[in-house]
Design a binder for these strands. Structure first.
Length: 422
DNA sequence: TCTGGGGTCCTAGGACCC
DNA sequence: TCTGGGGTCCTAGGACCC
């Protein structure tokens, strides 16, 4: 038997915004996705007003205004930096820590299993609060899937007061019988529908499925899920970050793009950013895909999706090589006469830079490496886009909207909060 | 005017091989 | 006229996650 906990930050992006702006406390707050498109985080007050995850901001604008909901553009630099602090606050409470997402961390609590784990979890929550101000909930159970479920129960049911320890089988069954099948981690819309067709609507019923039935209805994924709900771990708390398989830089445009030069400018910026990400992770890529498409939500408008995949040999993390490949892809896939609203670059076949296969005719790789290092340093020190290739252009009409972005409170010296005594 | 941006894993089916 | 029985690898697409 293992003992797993999941600690999850409440309304994470909103809580990060509130950490540096007390005026947001007690009022409804929504954090919008890139381009100020959708609601991706909501304070409890905003949830109470009926704002749903993924609601398009422009469709609910009136309601937001009427209730005085504060809308913040997303500030991922801030959220990423705050995550580091949360993880640091949590580490001493577990033997192993797996960062699962920007606001969730799995903990191996096996060595602490004979303590009162509710007390243990509350001490951990206090520490996170003190270090970051961020409120959290904790779920404890024998497997990760059950810990996820326990966490959801801790959040939803006031009875638990923020910490649900479901190691006790009787309590666990009680919760599972009342937990909607579609809310179980790993059960999405398609699977929920299939389950409902055979009368399965609770987590308890999924747990009681025959393995063969689970396999037949879904795939091995559902089979594993049944095992996890039965308390048999199908996945462990993983400390080591797995090798990444792919990487992407994609953005919607603030205004539609009609000409290839402007599109190239956007794609050039994404290529530069993709190279930077590769180098940060010490990786090289073997394949680059570029795509661009029209607004699929717009009925009646001409629709087109352009995409090309280019092999990169030698494998590379050189932004200028990525840029050249992306340009060739755009040229090949371009079609006049459409209003493009989104483009992106995806990298595949990722390999650690030091394991990169060598080829003949590579050119002066070291010199280019030094150029890229210099580029990263300049842009790191003086801000993004200080040094850019001419192809990126100087006008960025297409750039995304972020009208209510909070400052980089914790990561840029010129934007740290100041306190005045007057 | 207007709907995010990342990721992972699994399966089916085609191409190709002996 | 006859037309096996395995393999592997790759890709596209679906489903799911935050």
């Amino acid at each position: 038997m293992t003992t797993v906990a999941l600690i999850d930050c409440n309304n994470y992006y909103v809580s990060c915004e509130r950490a540096f702006d007390a005026s947001l406390n007690g009022v409804p707050v929504v954090v919008a996705s890139n381009n100020d498109g959708c609601a991706i985080a909501r304070s409890s007050e905003a949830k109470a007003l009926g704002v749903k995850m993924g609601d398009p901001i422009h469709l609910i604008r009136d309601r937001l205004n009427k209730h005085g909901v504060v809308v913040r553009s997303s500030n991922y630099t801030l959220y990423g930096d705050m995550q580091r602090r949360v993880v640091a606050a949590v580490e001493e409470f577990a033997s192993e820590v797996e960062i699962y997402s920007i606001d969730e961390t799995f903990l191996d609590l096996e060595p602490f299993a004979d303590r009162d784990l509710v007390d243990h979890a509350n001490a951990m929550r206090d520490q996170v609060r003190r270090w970051t101000t961020i409120p959290t909930c904790v779920g404890i159970a024998p497997t990760k899937t059950l810990a996820k479920l326990a966490n959801a129960a801790a959040k939803k049911n006031p009875l638990f007061d923020g910490v649900a320890d479901l190691r006790d089988p009787v309590l666990r069954s009680w919760v599972l019988d009342r937990f909607p099948a579609g809310d179980v981690w790993g059960v999405g819309r398609a699977t929920a529908t299939k389950l409902a067709e055979i009368g399965i609507t609770t987590a308890g019923q999924i747990r009681d499925m025959q393995m063969k039935q689970a396999r037949g209805l879904g795939t091995v994924v559902l089979e594993r899920l049944v095992a996890e709900l039965q308390g048999v771990a199908a996945s462990a708390v993983e400390v080591i970050e797995p090798q990444r398989r792919g990487m992407a830089v994609t953005r919607s445009f603030g205004t539609p793009v009609h000409d290839i030069e402007t599109l190239m400018g956007a794609v050039a910026q994404y290529a530069m950013r993709a190279g930077e990400k590769l180098r940060q992770h010490g990786l090289v890529a073997g394949q680059l895909s570029v795509f661009f498409h029209t607004n699929r939500f717009k009925a009646g408008a001409g629709q087109y999706q352009g995409a090309r995949r280019m092999a990169l040999h030698p494998m590379t993390a050189d932004s200028l090589e990525l840029l050249a490949a992306a340009r060739r892809g755009v040229e090949a896939a371009w079609r006049d006469g459409y209003a493009y609203t989104k483009a992106g670059i995806m990298l595949d076949d990722l390999v650690a830079a030091e394991l990169r296969p060598r080829t003949l005719f590579e050119g002066d790789v070291e010199r280019r490496d030094r150029l890229m290092t210099a580029l990263d340093e300049v842009n790191g020190r003086f801000g993004k886009f200080t040094a850019v290739p001419a192809a990126q252009g100087f006008r960025r009409d297409w750039k995304m909207r972020a009208e209510n972005r909070s400052p980089a409170w914790t990561t840029r010296i010129d934007e740290v909060p100041t306190v005045r005594a007057d």
